[in-house]
Every structure is written in structure tokens, then in C-alpha cells.
Design a protein around this nucleic acid. Sequence first.
DNA 1: GTGGTCTAGACCACC
DNA 2: GTGGTCTAGACCACG
Lengths: 148, 148, 148, 148
Amino acid sequence: MVLYITYMEILIRAGDELPIYRQVMNQITEALAVGRIHPGDKLPSHRNLAEQLVIAPLTVKKAYDELESLGFLETQRGRGTFVCLKLPRLKMAEQRDQIAAAARKLLSLAYMVGLDFRDAVAILKKVENEMLQGAPSAVRGTADKEDQ
Amino acid sequence: MVLYITYMEILIRAGDELPIYRQVMNQITEALAVGRIHPGDKLPSHRNLAEQLVIAPLTVKKAYDELESLGFLETQRGRGTFVCLKLPRLKMAEQRDQIAAAARKLLSLAYMVGLDFRDAVAILKKVENEMLQGAPSAVRGTADKEDQ
Amino acid sequence: MVLYITYMEILIRAGDELPIYRQVMNQITEALAVGRIHPGDKLPSHRNLAEQLVIAPLTVKKAYDELESLGFLETQRGRGTFVCLKLPRLKMAEQRDQIAAAARKLLSLAYMVGLDFRDAVAILKKVENEMLQGAPSAVRGTADKEDQ
Amino acid sequence: MVLYITYMEILIRAGDELPIYRQVMNQITEALAVGRIHPGDKLPSHRNLAEQLVIAPLTVKKAYDELESLGFLETQRGRGTFVCLKLPRLKMAEQRDQIAAAARKLLSLAYMVGLDFRDAVAILKKVENEMLQGAPSAVRGTADKEDQ
DNA sequence: GTGGTCTAGACCACC
DNA sequence: GTGGTCTAGACCACG
């Protein structure tokens, strides 16, 4: 079922060390990974999303552009921005590195506060549940069929 | 047992999105979390470590400075840089946030390449083993600690 | 009223025992204490201030960085450096210690040149007047603050 | 009355930003300013004082040397270190600058925690009382008269 | 134009 | 030899 996404569950932290456009990118790819949005879905326009997030339109535009150049999004002039039907695959090496880095980070944070491996897994489980909840507001897709 | 750390297992990836001084910081705090270095240990001088890593001394210095202002390291003029005897504790709220963020990152990366929860845990286990291996070269501490 | 500070009343004494970046830090916190600058104000860029003071940009940057890690300033990439809306509070013990140390210093210097307590208070009064005078050049803030 | 000072009320803070030898210098000149030690008094040997303070003898030596070159102390080979009978006077300009700087520091610290001028004066008064109390252990001088 | 990072030196102060 | 400071550039990323 293809959706018109009208509201994205994105949280911007202004003072964060991660630039705003990266926060937007990350949360869009996370939503994708978790299945809150799907291939073919239509994202809000960059101006619209910028308004929702109370940030500069150019910043959202940059996030969309980056995601487009990475192969996650596809912009159709005059129609809007869509999630690509065929999502890109990272190279195996990059995948491994990134996942391993995230794992190291999680473990060292956990160890530093006295948790052990089992605790870390428990947290992971809890976070998984959170991620699966909460879906974006959407209306049924009425777009032409040629872009599906 | 307090050690003079003479060699740090630190890997710099030049093109990484993380700045070099942050890579150094992260790997020092990881070494701490995992127990490869301990409170009271003496780290190599920033010049020395810079030489080992083939980067500019100021870059290592910046990493040490940040870690000092975070309460992990302590520098003594003319004597060297040491791991604080009393390590800082994050507030509970910050702890939870940071750990949860790391967990989200790990899961979304895993999902994005088609892995499931069990796979993620398996990776976590593998990474744990890697982190526990490899200890820095060191000599037994012979310093008098009474003037610290 | 939030201001764009364009000129800071900062005097650098090159040969001073206090390093330049500390002189900058001190005079910024003094300006804050005395009300010459306020929470939310935008400071000149570190390059700009460095030009005004005829010192290296990195030196001002270091002062800003330290003040940021102390919680006085906040930097936003591409936007500038601002006085924090919520200024940090020292712990009572630290406060007392620092103030007492400053008082000791003042008195011992005064005594050493033959002044007495009343003289010291008179000097204190005179210095207070100096500190309250002189405000930085500034223009009215026109920035939208909603994205901070 | 000339004294043999056998114990100095000196507190060393190892991690302080002020180098140790400066802490020693400052506290000796403060003791002088406040009248806890007097011209002609014999200070403990640098080794002895170093032992009391649990710091390196060379560090105390450096403090004594500096104070000697400033005209506060006088070392007599084989006899010991004495407070000069004729204490040096700083140049007027230096005096004014240093005292004013101390006053600025005191006021800005006080302002920053919400105190006003009267509070600052009250603190000053309290500190004065503390400084006048506490005298160094000493025995009556039995030294030859030629150095008095 | 802003901050963020980095380099490759230099000189000094400390212990 | 250690850390502390400073310079005078450079290039990049952000908004």
C-alpha cells in the first residue's frame, strides 16, 4: 500500500553535534528500515516538512538531495519526492563497518555505566519495540500508477 | 596496578566522517570502558601518541583536552597525562538517551540490510569479543603517586 | 532585548602572565557579570574578534570553546556563537572558594603596599564604576530565535 | 622579634592551574603582607619545607629563588633563607594594575552569583579576619645579630 | 560568512 | 621530556 506521507515523526535537536540535515536523513532512513515508510511512498514537500520541523527549507532540501544521490529517494519535478522502489544496498564492507561501529558504541556506553552484555541486549530489545511503534500520518495513495 | 601506557591500540581512518580527534577520544573511552586502561594509568604524551598515529600533535592534544574537560583525563604540567582516579558519571537521563540512541542506530543499520534482531545480537557478541582482546603495551608503573 | 555584539571591549596585554585566551575568557565573563552582554546575545565570530584584537583566530576560538564547555556560550554551525540563555551555576562550595580566593588576593596585595581595609574597599568601589561603564557596540537583534 | 619559622601554613593544590612553585610564592608573600612572618625571620630550609608540603625540593627551591630575585628573601650560604629586612616596593603602576585586577575578579565573581557590592565588602571583611588569624609555628630567634 | 578541523611548526614553563 | 600557548595558514561543512 503506497501512502502519501503527510507527517513525519522527526525530532530535531538544534544544538546537536549532528548537523540538522543529517538528523533528517538519519530519521528518514530509520523510518524506512523499520517499515514506518515504504518504497513508493510520497514524502511531504521539502517546504512542508521544513515548516513542520521549524527549520530552513534549504536544510530539508539538502537532506532530500543527499538521500536522492544515495538512491533512497527520487524527485519527480512537479510531482514530489518519493521513496525509491528499489532501495540501494550498501557495499558489504561498509555495512559491516557501520554496524560494527554502532555495536562498539553501544557496548562501550553500556560498560561505562556498569551494565553487562545481557543488559545491553535487554536495552536493544526495548528499543526495537519502540522503533516498531508509531507510524507516520498518511492518506491512501491516489497517485498515478506509473510511479509505483 | 597503575601502568605507563606506551602504546595505544588506536586506529585512525583518515577519510572518516568522524573528525580525527573524536576518533581518538572514542577509542580512549572505549579502552577505558573495556578495561584495557585503568584509572591512574599514564597515557603517552600527546606528542608521542601523535607520532605513533602519524597526525599533528595538536590533534591529539585536542582529544586529551576534551577528555580532560569531560573528567576522564587529568594533565599535570611537566609530568604527563593520566586517567582520572575518579571517573565521571553521566546523569541517568543522559545515560539512557545515549545508550538508546546507539541501540537505535545499530538496529536500523541492521534492519536496512535485511538482518533481524537475532542477527544484531550475534554481531554485538562478536564485537564484544574483539573489544576485550588486545591490550596496550605498558610497563609497570614506578611513579610515586603521593604528589598527585 | 537580544543584541548582535559587533564590538567587544576587550584589552589584550601581550606580556601578561595570563595567556591571551584566558584574558579573553575573563573579560567576556566579566562583561556578562556586569550586564554589558546578556543571555541570547550573538558574539562576533571568532575570526572577526581575532581581527579586532590582532591575535590569531584559533586563540579566540579556544576562548570561545572553553566558555562553551563551561556552559556560558553556545555555538551553532554556520550561525554564530551566542551567550547561553541558561547560564551555569557553580556549586555553592566552588563559589565560596573562588570568591574567598579573590578576596584574599585583593587584601594581600593591598596590605603589601601599606593600604588598609578601608582603602581596599575604596578601590573596590572605583573598580565597580569602571566595570559598569562602557558597553559593546551592538545592533538590535533581528534574528528569528525559534530555531534555537 | 625575629623568629625561626619552622612550620608554614601553606596549602598545595596539586591539580591547580597555578604551578606549585607559584602557590608557594603567593602564600609566602601573603603571610608577609598579613604579618604572619616578618622581615628578618628565618624560613625553613627548602628541603624541610618540601618535606612538609610533600612536593619536590626543587620546586620549593624555585619558589625561594624567585622570591629572592624579587627582593623578598635573602639566602645566606650555610645559614639559611631569611625574609629581607627591607622589603621591595612594586612600581606604582604595577601595584595599581594588580590590585585593580584582583578587585575586578572579586566583583565579577560576586555579581555572577547574584551578590551586590555590599555583599562583596562583607566577604572581604570576613576574609580579612581569617587572614589575620593563624600564625606559623616558630621559636625565638637565637641567630647572630649581624643579619638583623 | 559561520564554525569545525587540521597542519607544521615555534617558544615557553614546569618538574 | 612534559604540557601550555600561539601563529598563520589551509580546506571543509553548514545554513
